[in-house]
């Protein structure tokens, strides 16, 4: 049965993911030099930015899978979309929690209506809506289609959201947003950030695979109880 394959894929992704996470911790706490102007608080950056990257990637997956689901009607695409959406919301939550912890020291305030913060918050709400919508309908098929529509709307809205909020608070100094890829950044900082990006990406896909297996089992169980031999899943594979 395919769940065994999924489990093996998940573990295969998780092992290097966890190894890289351990490496990341060694790098962040023992190896990478402290940033000059911002001090130790800058070390939050190495989980904050990878989380943001994973969240955006997850929402990209949600939109792509949603569009493909509406187009092809393959249930597996919807399962992938909901798995990615759950991860995307959680990683956005990490971004929204670690951001203020950093900002309290770097900017002297927990929250400002800075463009990136505002658009991240709105994104969080959009995809929480996505998850809520799935459970809010009497027909699961309908919930999946509704959620797919919202997933697509969300990604279409992102560029406009970002443009709008940037416009609204354009006075914000851009210099506070650190750019480790810039000329002054120590190479070790870039390496640490890259470790973080790789570790979080692998972990995300590992847990997403696990979540996908759960969704698959849920669908199979509900179709088994309905007395039909899981036509949508089987048909999707054809």
């Amino acid at each position: 049965m395919q769940l065994t394959g999924l489990r093996r894929t998940g573990v295969l992704l998780a092992i290097p993911g966890i190894a890289l996470v351990l490496l990341l911790h060694w790098q962040v706490f023992f190896w990478v030099p402290t940033e000059v102007t911002m001090g130790v608080i800058q070390r939050i950056y190495y989980v904050h930015v990878p989380s943001a990257w994973v969240a955006f990637m997850a929402f990209g997956i949600v939109a792509a899978c949603s569009a493909a689901y509406l187009w092809l009607g393959d249930e597996r695409l919807d399962m992938a979309a909901v798995s990615a959406a759950e991860g995307g919301v959680l990683f956005t939550t990490i971004v929204l929690l670690t951001g203020p912890l950093w900002a309290r020291t770097a900017w002297g305030t927990w929250w400002t209506w800075e463009p990136r913060l505002t658009s991240t918050l709105l994104l969080w709400f959009i995809y929480v809506g996505y998850l809520l919508l799935r459970g809010a309908t009497d027909s699961p098929q309908r919930g999946k289609r509704f959620a797919a529509v919202l997933g697509i709307l969300g990604i279409l809205d992102i560029p406009l959201i970002h443009l709008s909020v940037t416009w609204f608070r354009s006075l914000h100094p851009q210099a506070v947003v650190m750019r480790p890829e810039g000329p002054q950044a120590d190479p070790s900082m870039v390496i640490t950030l890259l470790t973080g990006l790789a570790a979080f990406t692998l972990l995300f896909f590992a847990i997403m695979t696990y979540r996908y297996a759960l969704e698959r089992l849920t669908v199979e169980r509900s179709t088994a109880f309905a007395g039909t031999p899981a036509p949508s899943v089987a048909g999707g594979g054809a």
Binding site: V40, I41, I44, L90, I94, T98, L101, W102, R104
Partner: peptide
């Protein structure tokens, strides 16, 4: 010590959330 605590809390939150998901 506040920045240290914030870094500390941030990393704990990250792992609590990921662990919670699993």
């Amino acid at each position: 010590l506040r920045p240290y605590w914030h870094v500390f809390i941030a990393y704990i939150l990250v792992w609590l959330i990921l662990f919670g998901w699993v």
